[in-house]
Computed example of a mutant assay.
Amino acid sequence: MMKMKKMSVYLGEKDRYQHKEMYEHILEICYNNGIKGATVIKGIMGFGEKRHIHRNDFFTLSEDLPIVVEVIDVEERINFLASRVRELPFDGLIVIQDVEAYYVTGKK
């Protein structure tokens, strides 16, 4: 078990930076700065501070579904990454939590 930090970045599918999706830009920052790993999760429904519900179902196709970028690494790298993400031009939320991480290889 390792004590690590998890950073979750909540943003919208429409968020862009330099002609690409914001989540892709955040992943590039992670990759270029030695972050151990990151995952992008696309939500099917959600709302934020502006209280507008975004959903994806048969009858309603939202063009701005919620996106979450999750990153787990040591505290120093997460703090560095958070400082970089806070500078980006998007409306969203950054959450940092303490986590216990276990590597699972599937081999006995």
Rank of each mutant, 00 (worst) to 15 (best):
M2W: 03
R55F: 03
I44M: 13
H19D: 15
M45E: 14
Y10I: 08
D73Y: 09
N32F: 03
Y31E: 12
P89N: 15
E24P: 00
Y102T: 12
E76Q: 13
R16T: 14
E28T: 12
A38C: 14
E87K: 14
E70T: 13
L88Y: 05
L27P: 00
C30N: 04
R86T: 09
Y102M: 13
F58Q: 13
Y10T: 05
I29Q: 03
E70F: 02
R86L: 15
R51D: 07
G106C: 09
L11V: 08
L61M: 08
T39F: 04
H54S: 12
R84T: 04
K5G: 02
I78V: 15
V68A: 04
D91H: 07
H19T: 04
Y31P: 00
K5L: 08
F58G: 14
E87H: 02
G106K: 08
Y31R: 15
K3C: 01
V74C: 06
Y10Q: 05
V85F: 01
S83E: 15
D57Q: 12
K20H: 05
N32A: 11
G34C: 02
I35E: 07
I96H: 09
C30M: 04
H52Q: 10
I94P: 00
D64K: 02
G43F: 01
K50Q: 12
D73M: 10
K5T: 02
D15P: 04
A101S: 14
V104H: 09
F80E: 07
E70K: 13
F90Q: 01
H54D: 11
P89W: 05
A38H: 05
I94H: 03
A101W: 07
D64S: 04
F80C: 01
L61I: 10
L93K: 11
I53N: 04
Y31A: 11
M22L: 15
S83R: 13
S62E: 08
E24K: 11
E75V: 01
D57P: 08
E76G: 01
F47E: 15
S8M: 14
E21P: 09
I53F: 12
D57L: 10
G92I: 07
V99A: 03
